[in-house]
Design a protein around this nucleic acid. Structure first.
Lengths: 328, 328
DNA sequence: AACATGTGTGGAATCGATTACATGTCCTTT
DNA sequence: AAAGGACATGTAATCGATTCCACACATGTT
């Protein structure tokens, strides 16, 4: 491996001069050319570990995901990457596989790797997490969860869920079932459920325990929850099912189809997430587009801004778009 | 930021000893405890830039993707991550956005970041690329393309495509249209097309130019290609369409549905990729599962093995599974 | 008793860059 | 003609770790 010293020796200059070639200081045209020629020939690239050690900047930003292989996550990462790549940053990816201790572990790890900033897609909020973030003392952005004291890019879960519920109501549905997720997830678990419950309450519609189930984001869980809802409802069946994610909604549709329900005639279905799939299902799925990629871009831009100068912690709420399709 | 020197001073030992605590050398129980206590209190974590500079190892492996937000890519990354995370490696992600010069650029970049190895999902093969890989002189794995002189995890594109074509033929189809991609992609572009063409030839079935179109992986291109095929075929319509990716197959189905074709009665459709979606479409899509995640895992394992000891360059061909569903 | 061996610790070089400071030219300006 | 500034280059300290070598001490071996 060639180093700056090798180049310096070959070009008969000090390594300072070589360094200056790469960091635009005063270097005469002659010398610059001579050095560049040697650089080309040897294929020398400066060691970024050394540079990072010296400058305390790595040109890397850390991203912590709950799970890589979901459409939401990959869209967000794609948005982040698009923005940071332009500024010659790379992404160091970590995946918690939904274990929340790992979020904290990875924050520490990324810190010791001298990343210049961190973007976290959190799935929960707890005191240790906040403490770890504060301790890291790095530019930090949270996407999807409102972490106190941390700049956050938020989805409007409450209103999105309200709107979906509302849409179902305007389509004459009065018996609306709900498939949610655990409430340790404040955004997807709590906010979306609140939106659902409050809207029902507002219209004086029945809230029945038998119509409310809790899944785990997976298609299968949507399927199982729907089965339970149908089973437990006896003769008082709901006429619509609102699942808080598209995947669970797809599971619901699957079960309903198997049981011979016609969608939306016998049972309407709606989700959230605007998965690619939602558009091509039969019937196409009513859902909410959260603009994940844009959220990633925005997060990246704010992170870069924070790296240049300290900013006050802010909260940004993304817009969303209700997509009415044939499943309702 | 606390450093090893701070810890050493606070514990009244030399920094050598502190280092030894983390790298299991001789340290007495007493001293070890004293140091660990201070480490806990200060939240000290060793600077990995410094460590990497000194040891020439970074604990990072570089991954070069053509596009992050595709199901294939995210599955592969997920597989890679699962394996390397266990060994405490992280992934440095780069996305070429389908520009092939960037593959080379990123190889250099990853090299200068001292990654311990690189996994590339290539979309093409060219001499410069091979040269860059050789020059990098790092443990290297290619997934999906057979790069000469590079350990490669390959999909069996030729036989997969043959099998799909065969399946269509056993279902009495004699007029089979084809939606491919550009041939600068040897695997998806060439091999799959060869599988299709050779199988038709084997059965003495007609190969008509009007039935062959070239898309660009997108759903929209599948839609457009199908439109062209239908338009250009006049009265001699094919009875089946084989698209080399699920997304293009979905576009095909979309167009056919719009035009009132019944699938598979009027026109059968098949894809490759086993996208999540394929299972939930109506009708469900016949496709080929490439086990992308397993490919990622395998790539990661081979990379780790190469990092421990130099290995001969090998070629591994993944198995695949033809999934016969209702669209055929 | 002399010597080898195992254990525990510190000193100092080293990895490959950046950068503050010093030095030396050569012009321009007053 | 002296001074000041712009330009060009070099010297050496520094970033935070690892690691070779040396040394000290305790214990075991012959």
């Amino acid at each position: 491996m060639t180093t700056i010293n090798d180049i310096a020796k070959m070009a008969n200059v000090s390594r300072t001069t070589v360094s200056r070639v790469f960091n635009n200081g005063y270097v005469s045209e002659d010398v610059r050319k001579r050095i560049m020629k040697i650089v080309e020939e040897t294929g020398y690239t400066p060691s970024l570990s050394a540079k990072s050690l010296r400058t305390k900047k790595s040109g890397v930003i850390g991203v912590i995901l709950p799970k890589i292989s979901t459409e939401t996550a990959s869209r967000v990462v794609s948005g982040i990457n698009e923005v940071v790549a332009k500024e010659n940053f790379q992404i160091l990816l970590t995946d918690t596989e939904l274990q929340k201790e790992k979020e904290i572990e990875y924050i520490r790890l990324l810190k010791s790797r001298h990343v210049d900033g961190i973007i976290l897609l959190a799935t929960n909020i707890n005191a240790d997490l906040i403490k770890a973030i504060t301790a890291a003392d790095l530019p930090f952005i949270s996407i999807g969860q409102d972490l106190p004291g941390v700049t956050s890019i938020l989805y409007d879960d409450y209103h999105a869920a309200s709107d979906v519920t509302n849409l179902l109501i305007t389509h004459q549905h009065t018996k609306i079932a709900f498939i949610g997720v655990g409430e340790e997830d404040p955004s997807v678990g709590r906010q979306r459920k609140m939106g659902y419950l409050d809207t029902l309450a507002k219209f004086n519609l029945p809230i029945k325990e038998e119509w409310i189930e809790e899944g785990d984001f997976s298609i299968e869980s949507g399927y199982e929850c729907t089965k339970k809802i149908i089973k437990n409802s006896g003769t008082d069946l709901p006429s619509a099912i609102f699942a808080v994610t598209d995947r669970m909604a797809i599971g619901a549709m699957e079960y309903l189809r198997e049981q011979g329900f016609s969608i939306p005639k016998d049972m309407a279905v709606a989700g959230i997430g605007a998965s690619t799939m939602s558009k091509y299902l039969t019937p196409s799925l009513t859902t909410v587009d959260y603009f994940n990629k844009e959220a990633g871009e925005k997060a990246a831009r704010h992170l870069l801004a924070q790296m240049i100068q300290k900013k006050d912690k802010e909260k940004f709420t993304q817009t969303y778009r209700l997509i009415k399709r044939d499943s309702v």
